[in-house]
Design a protein around this nucleic acid. Structure first.
Lengths: 223, 223
DNA sequence: GGATGTGTCAATGTATACATTAAAGTATTT
DNA sequence: AAATACTTTAATGTATACATTGACACATCC
């Protein structure tokens, strides 16, 4: 049995920083120098630097020559870019899954996620709701099996997540999302690829538009 | 005027390694240790390491714990993944451009790339052809303006490029591709988004299938 | 006062040192 | 010869050293 598979400092730094960013504990615009971060994480600059490079290539931070690392703000344009990509990719993912006629066991996690979303919303627990939503999308990517696509879409979803933490409370309860997820799931279950694809496209388009108009309404140009 | 904007060793290493990989001068499967690469590039391990991390997160190399860095082989499955993504994304790009009714000036680079492809093929110059083809796709992404999408698709195209260097000579002249590019361009010119999208989808699907069946035919499981 | 020059400071980019540890080779036992 | 234990080697992960250079503060000049 492979025991506690030694985790390197780089991985540690990467994971911790990423989590802090994802949850907005290190909010957009947050800036710090390498020595500061190193101190905070209790390690030397080297592993911190390497972790930062990875975060940079994921588009989460920006390394500014002499001013430190900055958690990249997300502006409306970013969100438009991100949703545009998601709207291209995820519907095809859903379509492909539907075409593959997955077993009920394979669909279980989707089913659970959809139920959890509904339950969470009834209890007005938006955080749990967002979690379940993430899980739905995550499982779909797992089912699909295209690893590159998965990694990329997950990275985009992380960005969406950051934004949603803020906007979620500024908006009405996301009832429509729940319904749309249900529909998508049903189309998949029935093996109707086109319907699944279309339903997903509608879902992403609507969600994107709502998010963006929420940002615009509250003048959140830059989060 | 900002002069020769000092290029850091990391950027240097990154660019050189990437180029060598892209052109298969460092072929798939090539392995080397950090000290070896550092020596070859005439710098210390540190910048090399940082460049490698970036290349790793782009999926070009794999850093294997004690055995060195390995240029990632591309297998058929990788190509399937890549083409699947391209087939999702690029048609929408073409569609959006068409919908934006671009000016003839904006379309010039596409026009040129298409012409160059035709000229190159007449002279049987496959390398020039591949270059022009890359340019066509590149310019489309520029016109589209979604930066994230651009970077991602370019990275995928790099992988395709690596494979094509090998397969290009194993196949018939890519006449169809030329014709398809022309068609796409015409649809864009006419502002017909749906037609552009469909033409592009057809193009990517066909190209992907041909490439993959070529790999299968020659039993190139792993390039 | 505003613009320009100068000096200090500190962050980065890079080199280097060093401990750890996997891998390969060698010796030992059977 | 095969299996095992031991030794050696060298690559990595990390810390640290250090030179360079931008940013900022202050002084100088108009």
């Amino acid at each position: 049995m492979p025991m506690t598979n030694k985790v390197t400092r780089v991985e540690n730094a990467y994971a911790r920083l990423k989590k802090e960013i994802r949850t907005n504990r290190m909010p957009s615009g947050f800036q710090a120098t390498e020595p500061e971060i190193a101190l905070r994480l209790g390690m030397s600059r080297t592993p911190v630097r390497e972790a930062l490079i990875r975060l940079e290539s994921e588009g989460l931070v920006e390394i500014i020559p002499r001013r430190g690392v900055r958690v990249l703000p997300i502006n409306i344009n970013d969100m438009k870019e991100i949703y545009e990509i998601l709207t291209s990719l995820e519907p095809d993912v859903a379509g492909n899954i539907a075409a593959k006629n997955p077993t009920e066991t394979e669909l279980r996690p989707l089913e659970e996620a959809a139920s959890d979303m509904e339950a969470a919303l009834e209890q007005e627990d938006l955080d749990t709701w967002a979690d379940a939503d993430d899980r739905f999308h995550h499982h779909m990517l797992d089912l699909h099996g295209n690893r590159r696509l998965r990694e990329f879409v997950l990275a985009l979803n992380d960005q969406v997540h950051r934004t949603r933490i803020v906007t979620l409370r500024l908006r009405d309860k996301p009832m429509k999302s729940n319904k749309e997820h249900r529909e998508i799931l049903e189309h998949i279950r029935r093996g109707d690829a086109d319907a699944a694809r279309n339903a997903f496209r509608t879902h992403r388009k609507r969600a994107g538009q709502e998010l963006i108009s929420c940002l615009e309404k509250f003048r959140i140009t830059n989060l």
